[in-house]
Amino acid sequence: MSEKVNIICRCEEIQIEEIRHWINKGYTNLEELKRILRITMGPCQGRGCRDIILREISMATGKPISELNTGVIRPPVKPIKFSLLAEDN
């Protein structure tokens, strides 16, 4: 049988074990995990991984997700081509 791989952040190919490793080291804020692992900063901007990671933080800290820092959503929210932005109006 092949080894089970559970990738949570597909943009950066981060596995659940890596996320748990850093949470266990005390990095229990999404902003910290983001800076160590690049999660939520790839092309999907956290659409794929944010909820799962927040659930992991919530389980590790015992805090409800509503009390956790959910990170900052930055423009342009969905990736757009440079050529569109550079066009003259």
């Binding site: 900063m41 930055r74 990736p79 757009i80 081509k81 440079f82």
Partner: peptide
Amino acid sequence: ALSGVRVVRQW
């Protein structure tokens, strides 16, 4: 060469 590349995020 980057004209078809997408911007993901600004801060």
